[in-house]
Design a protein around this nucleic acid. Structure first.
Length: 239
DNA sequence: ATTCAGGTATGAA
DNA sequence: TTCATACCTGAA
């Protein structure tokens, strides 16, 4: 199917560190596995061609890509801070979206992400998946994790699987390996709580280098997670 | 050979 | 509460 969508850029999203299973097939063409589905999507400016039906788009991918959220409004709300760095970031990341990915996949992905680099995170998640299917809690609980490149994080994955299988009213934040940063990532990417702003090394670098070590106001705002996303992209990929 | 990479658990001050 | 340190792994 063909679709026209504004403020939506696949490369920007892929480079924003929120998803680890997108595969770039060629220029402007991506293969995206999610929830036992696979989408092939190509982009030319604001025109998109998707390998799914209209029905599947409305039922699943529209929400996955967060296309129902008003990003124009969020971009506008950044202006009130009269902050040059933030507004440059918003301008350069005008196609950014906070994906609505599967909670379980986000939880596991960001447990793996701690003290780790994107290349290795991607590799480990590949090792965990079979035929594009992300492993269920039961599968991870049974799976031998010692040869997946997880290092010391294997016990965190086991604890997460145990938690998911028998949710005893315990919060996901009690899982071993979930600290402040990972919790913020899980809330932002897995629960779409846009006020959460993961303080990773890039955000710390921004505070240090762009704000003289003083935390800017937008980091504590309603859309802090969205601002974080465009600033991360701007600092890491554009500057 | 070190250092570093999108942090956290642990134990001491 | 805050602070230093170890931690799997693999690439530079």
């Amino acid at each position: 199917m063909i679709q026209v969508i504004d403020n939506f850029d696949l490369q920007q999203i892929a480079d924003s560190g929120q998803c680890f299973r997108w595969e770039k097939i060629e220029d402007n063409i991506w293969r995206i596995p999610a929830k036992n589905k696979i989408l092939v999507i190509s982009q030319h400016k604001n025109q998109f061609e998707l390998s799914c039906t209209e029905k599947e788009f409305r039922e699943y991918w529209e929400e996955y890509f967060d296309l129902k959220t008003d990003y124009k409004k969020m971009m506008e709300s950044g202006k009130k801070y009269q902050d040059v760095f933030l507004n440059q970031a918003i301008k350069h990341g005008a196609g950014m979206r906070i994906l609505q990915q599967d909670f379980w996949e986000v939880l596991i992905s960001f447990l793996i992400s701690q003290n780790n680099n994107i290349k290795r995170i991607t590799k480990i998640i590949q090792n965990l998946c079979q035929e594009d299917i992300f492993p269920s809690p039961e599968m991870l609980f049974e799976m031998n994790l010692t040869d997946k490149g997880l290092g010391y994080r294997d016990i965190y994955i086991k604890d997460a699987a145990k938690w998911k299988i028998s949710e005893e009213g315990r919060s996901f934040t009690d899982i071993k390996g979930v600290g402040p940063k990972v919790e913020a990532c899980i809330r932002l990417y897995g629960l779409h709580e846009l006020q959460y702003c993961p303080m990773d090394t890039w955000m710390k670098r921004i505070v240090l280098e762009e704000y003289n070590g003083k935390k800017p106001k937008w980091m504590d705002s309603q859309y802090a997670g969205y601002f974080q996303q465009v600033c991360f992209y701007y600092k890491r990929m554009v500057l």
